[in-house]
Each structure stands twice: as C-alpha cells, then as structure tokens.
C-alpha cells in the first residue's frame, strides 16, 4: 500500500534536513506504530504524506498503491485514500462542520467518479458515526473545530476519518489531549476501521494507546531515520527504558 524509499526532506527555505533516509513499507491490513523523541521528524513525515508544501524532497520516493505519491496534489491523495489525522487540528471559522464534512465527502466521491451522497443518507451516516464517538449534534453545528476542546478536536478528526473511509490512515498523536474515556472511545472508533484492505500508521509517544490499538509493527524514528523496527514488544520496552539505546545508534 505504502512504500517509502530512502526519503530525505528539508524545509524548503533553509537547509536543515529533517528526514534523512526513511525506508518504510506498510501493507494492507497492517498497523504500524511510529514512536520517537520530540523533534525526530514524525509529524514531518505525516505532513509529507498528506502533501504539505513546506518541505523539499531532496531524495527518495513514496509509492501509494504503486503510484508516485509525490506527484499528487493533497486533494488527489485524499481522494485516492490517504488520510492524516492532524496532531494539531486547526480551527476554520465560518465553515460549518456539517457543511465541511459534506463538501469533503462529495468532493472525494466526485474525484472517484461516484455520485454525491443524498442529504438524508449523509445525515444518517454522520449522526450514527458521531454518536459512536460521543460527538454531539451541537458540536457539528459549530464552525469546524472552533471552540472545540483539545479532546473534541481529536474526536472530530476520527469522525472525519470514519466518514471518509480512507485506505491509509495516518494518526499523528491522536491520543494526546484525550481523557481516559475518550481514549477508549477513539480507539474503538479506530479499531472499527481496521480491515484487511486498510492500513494504519499510528504516531504516538505512549504505550497506553497501543494497548487499545495493537500494532503489528513498531518503528523508532530518531533524527529523521528509522533506527529500530520490531513488534509490539518494542513499544513496551521503550516505555520502560526510554529512547537512550536507539538515539545513540542514530548518531
């Protein structure tokens, strides 16, 4: 599904290389966890996958279902099944959440040559999925993310994800800011989406999320490189010992 080969990237304006040769292959049905110290490049990797323009790719390539992902616009990637749950979802004043959800869903359907969803069908789907995630209709009436609490924003991201039914879900610290109950609700929402056709990349600092969303593969990212790959036991080990062993290895 996703093949990242020797990816190097830096901020376009200056010369600092943030990603320094990432190799990562994610197959359909797999859940990969990416962990690593603050500033190691996890969010950068997720932004590059989503198509943010702030970065310059100096080397390497990304294949998404065999296609060159770096040639695609962000909205084309989304229509092809890429979804990023942002670490910091932004507020969009003046754009009603419902209207936004409908526009996004129908834009993707259109790009794939499908008919738009009828309004009643759309409403029914949103209501059901919102209820699963404990999101009130009142929240959906507000402008997108405006005045949402930190946890509400994260739940709103997962609502979008479950509505858009992407093929590749990249979750950037979706657990941060969630209370204990919300963590469980959101994890259940994510687990519902697990399927043999869908892959997930879960970026997190904490084992507690991985207790709920059990990964097949765990990677440690340090200074822009994957320095260790293992199974779910690796996360447990990191929880105990920290990154000291791996950070040095990357130097």
């Amino acid at each position: 599904m996703l093949e990242i080969k020797n990816l190097h990237a830096r901020i376009a304006e200056d010369e600092a290389e943030i990603l320094r040769g990432i190799d990562l292959t994610v197959n359909p049905g797999e859940v990969h966890a990416v962990m690593g110290p603050n500033g190691s490049g996890k969010s950068t990797l997720s932004y590059i996958l989503a198509g943010k323009e702030d970065y310059e790719i100096t080397e390497g390539e990304i294949l998404f279902n065999g296609e060159n992902m770096l040639d695609m616009e962000p909205d084309e990637r989304a229509a092809a099944g890429m979804f990023l749950a942002f670490q910091y979802p932004i507020e969009i004043p003046g754009v009603a959440t419902m209207e936004f959800l409908k526009t996004a869903l129908n834009a993707q359907r259109k790009a794939r040559g499908e008919d738009p969803l009828s309004i009643p069908d759309f409403m029914k789907t949103v209501k059901a999925k919102a209820a699963d995630l404990n999101i009130s209709m009142d929240m959906l009436k507000r402008p997108l993310n405006v005045g949402f609490s930190g946890g509400e924003k994260k739940r709103s991201e997962i609502l979008q994800m479950s509505l858009l039914e992407p093929k590749l879900c990249v979750l950037d610290e979706t657990d941060s800011g969630l209370d204990i109950d919300a963590l469980r609700i959101v994890s259940e929402g994510v687990n519902k989406l697990r399927s043999p056709e869908r892959a997930m990349v879960v970026i997190t600092h904490y084992q507690r999320l991985l207790d709920h969303i059990v990964p097949d593969v765990v990677h440690v990212l340090s200074r822009g490189k994957i320095v260790k790959t293992g199974d779910k036991a690796l996360a447990l080990e990191l929880e105990k010992n920290g990154y000291a062993d791996y950070v040095d290895a990357a130097a």
């Binding site: 198509g51 909205d75 990023l84 003046g94 936004f100 869903l105 993707q108 858009l164």
Partner: peptide
C-alpha cells in the same frame, strides 16, 4: 491545506474560505 487534505480541490477550498 487542511481542506485540501480532506479531498477538497483547491478552487473549491478557496471558495469555501472566502465565503466563510
């Protein structure tokens, strides 16, 4: 970018933001 990352083409995303 946020709107485009959700699949809304650039023109449409611009319209949405100007409208807002």
């Amino acid at each position: 970018f946020y709107l485009r990352a959700r699949g809304i083409p650039e023109d449409e995303a611009q319209t949405l933001l100007i409208m807002a």
